[in-house]
Design a protein around this nucleic acid. Structure first.
Lengths: 469, 469
DNA sequence: GGGTATTTGTCCGTATGTATG
DNA sequence: TCATACATACGGACAAATACC
């Protein structure tokens, strides 16, 4: 049932039916039409090309006579199965063929940003999805608010208030397909040439996004409480991007004292803002919950970022941003130029997911799952005979492994690679190499590792570190 | 089953159970917990807050005693149904309540960018959607390629080759949630400070997107063949944004001659590019199809933009962009900073939709639907007794109505508004008012109008124009 | 799962322009 | 000049297969 765009020239000496005939034959010889493929019906093609049906008929008849096509009455015309086509397959630079999966056989991957493979709540998702598609009327299919539908924004508002102490109105919420997209919007809202301060080391992907967008980025040193506000004060940065709930990659939780210092910093100038990426706040295994920075803010200074991609599935593109009221006004100025990046169906599914409690139940399940893995990992390490220090193990889905006296980071990572183990060094996450760590520090994630594999994986990792394998 | 984020202070003089009690009571009085809602179980909450279960128990018991809570053994604690809560609903600035639907009773809307209400192929979409969710394994739920999954990109490649003569490899395709998002990416790829030339009048929403992104935009005059290349040559623009298949709002189809002139212009400098927005190319009722500009391009100069949002449903956010090979390389440099904005499920649905021919069948149905409305509209106008000229009626979902001798555009639009008819004047679509049209020109869309309403709507429109109502 | 509307290849009659005798 | 034949292009009618509800 394909349409074929054929540039027909009525004035040409070549008759119309022959132009059609030539074009189709050419396509077949170039391998662009595969054996068995159905051609458009004479009616459809004739209407499309604005010619008579018999003109198309004539072309088809001829191809039929020559054996290029086969006709099945009342069904359609099909491309014949001639071997000839196989040989002429387009091969110019191989760019048309699917790239090979470069899935070399990795044994264990201590990935930092994956999620538990079986973690996706397939059945619930499917159920809600079907319900939405069955019940919802056609209003689903008209473009809605640029910030997202009111319903899902309301659901998110209530959810983040309950679970994170974020206080806002649904009007301050903008949803979008991924944090990077929301940062793009932020770039537009904050206008250009903004200097952003980031913790160093930091989430490299956000750093790259800022860079590509044309922000200028300053790395600020950290202590165990998080970004050092003194250094921040010294820099010309007007926006500070922080992860108070679980800093990536260090795993520090920012204590209330530092949070208040940060808020004070922001309050000192009108155009200062804090971007709070509430990274991995869903997964916390020890210590009392600290409400989000946003909830402490009295001066309308915090831009809050959250996502469902990490807690549900990365392939579900769904993030949200809470704007302070002052920026909300700027958003209203530009919102007409952008439209929401999440389909209405997905918005409705997510709304339902949150409202009927499935989401929180899912979070509880995942938290237990991750906690089990974390505990297992920690107990496995107790068997190690060499000195090590663990930090950042009380939240998120990875921990930080300090290795005083062990070899160089890069060497350990490479040794691990040789044994088909993927493990990640801290160095990669520094913004400027000069500020880099001198220690040997590995980041070991357990999100994607299977529970059953952890003992063996940790044993091997220990041996790799000791270089005893 | 909610999580309650409560900032507990162990050092406070107030006992822990009282802090919990106060917080919950406060929440209820603020109307944030609604009657009948279930509270977290004592076990869950105690684990979450890292306190003993009896502490939570104590707090709950007290609330129970005071009648705020009800307890159902073996089920949980529930918020009591006290009328008191209703009255204290958060009302600060009304910003928490859902905004009223400002759907004043419009009689007829000659909207330009809507789609036929019944046009969405609900059943097919649902069917495919269920199939995907039932069959697909968990790989659906891992983050994929930033440009989109190879499968859809391949399907799109084949589709646009067949139907539009666009020749490319799937590697040149980037999918994204809406044209505006793709323009954002383009802004990153093209680097900053690019001058963009647009047809004048043009698609205002794209204009605003360019502006917000920080492009500087030049409006270039048009004749009936489209953008005037002489004027383009004079401007410093390095990128030309055009809609050759059906210019919005004028409805012109750019003839081959002008297309070649444009390509020549682009070929003259290395950093010149043409953005071809293949607007409304799906809907063409007369005249032979002209392949896309991209297909004529031999110098790697055309960035091709297409979307499914217009042809399927605006709430489905799905657009695609074909990069010339030179820009593809720049994309490879920045792609790590951005992730795809369309969920994998939606990508798979769309792939299936295209591959099994449902999409093209859907297009045929829509085209017939729109054609019927168009013909009806044209025949209705024959009854008009005043002079008028129609242009741009052979494609898209609107036509251009020139009204020599009629009153001022603005007045007609306002008169129509008084009779609850929405009709749109051409003037709104000019970039600079100075270059504006002197004529009285209305744009009348038929996408959202119901067929049965068209005769009455056209009769009224005629009377409004003549000011005889 | 069964009934109906639509789509399909096929067949056929017609119109127009051109070349031939 | 006229008659004939042929190539090209157009569109209606029919029965079977298919899609849709």
């Amino acid at each position: 049932m394909y349409e074929l765009t054929i540039a027909l020239d009525a004035k040409s000496k070549k008759p119309l039916y022959e132009q059609i005939y030539d074009h189709i034959k050419g396509e077949m010889l170039k391998g662009r039409m595969r054996p068995g493929e159905r051609l458009p019906s004479t009616r459809v093609l004739s209407r499309y090309l604005q010619v008579s049906r018999s003109t198309v008929n004539l072309a088809y008849e001829q191809l039929l006579a020559e054996g290029y096509l086969e006709s099945i009455p009342c069904k359609g015309y099909y491309v014949s199965n001639l071997e000839l086509f196989e040989e002429v397959q387009e091969q110019d630079d191989g760019s048309l063929s699917k790239p090979e999966e470069s899935r070399e056989s990795i044994l264990y991957d201590f990935a930092l940003n994956g999620i538990d493979e079986d973690g996706f709540p397939v059945n619930q998702w499917r159920k809600i999805s079907k319900k939405i598609l069955d019940w919802e009327e056609s209003s689903l299919f008209q473009l809605g608010d640029s910030a997202g539908e009111w319903g899902v924004r309301d659901a998110i508002t209530q959810y983040i208030y309950r679970s994170r102490g974020v206080l806002c109105s649904p009007n301050q919420i903008i949803i979008g397909a991924g944090n990077d997209y929301l940062l793009m919007l932020l770039h537009v809202i904050l206008k250009h040439n903004t200097v952003v301060a980031m913790e160093n080391p930091t989430y490299k992907s956000a750093y790259e996004t800022f860079q590509c967008l044309g922000f200028s980025v300053k790395g600020i040193s950290m202590d165990t409480m998080g970004m050092q506000v003194d250094e921040l004060e010294q820099s010309e940065a007007s926006v500070a991007y922080v992860m108070p709930s679980h800093q990536f990659p260090m795993g520090y939780v920012m204590p209330v004292k530092r949070r208040l210092q940060l808020l004070n910093w922001a309050a000192k100038s009108e155009n200062r803002y804090i971007i709070e990426d509430d990274y991995d706040s869903e997964f916390r295994y020890k210590g009392k919950p600290i409400p989000a920075l946003q909830g402490l803010d009295r001066k309308d200074k915090v831009i809050y970022l959250g996502t469902f991609s990490k807690s549900i599935a990365p392939a579900i593109r769904f993030s949200y941003m809470v704007l302070p009221k002052s920026l909300k006004e700027k958003w209203d100025d530009v919102k007409k130029a952008f439209s929401v990046t999440i389909s209405k169906v997905d918005q409705r599914i997510m709304q339902e997911f949150i409202e009927n409690g499935t989401y929180e139940r899912h979070l509880n399940r995942m938290r237990n799952r991750y906690r089990t893995k974390r505990d297992l990992m920690l107990s496995c390490m107790k068997k190690w005979q060499f000195p090590y220090v663990i930090t950042g193990e009380d939240a998120g889905v990875h921990m930080v492994l300090h290795l005083p006296g062990a070899g160089k980071e890069q060497e350990i990572v490479e040794r691990a690679g040789k044994h088909k183990i993927l493990v990640y060094g801290l160095s990669n996450y520094y913004i400027r190499k000069s500020q880099q760590n001198q220690e040997t520090v590995l980041l070991i994630g357990y999100a994607t590792l299977r529970e059953a594999d952890i003992p063996a994986a940790m044993k091997m990792l220990g041996e790799v570190i000791e270089n005893k394998l």
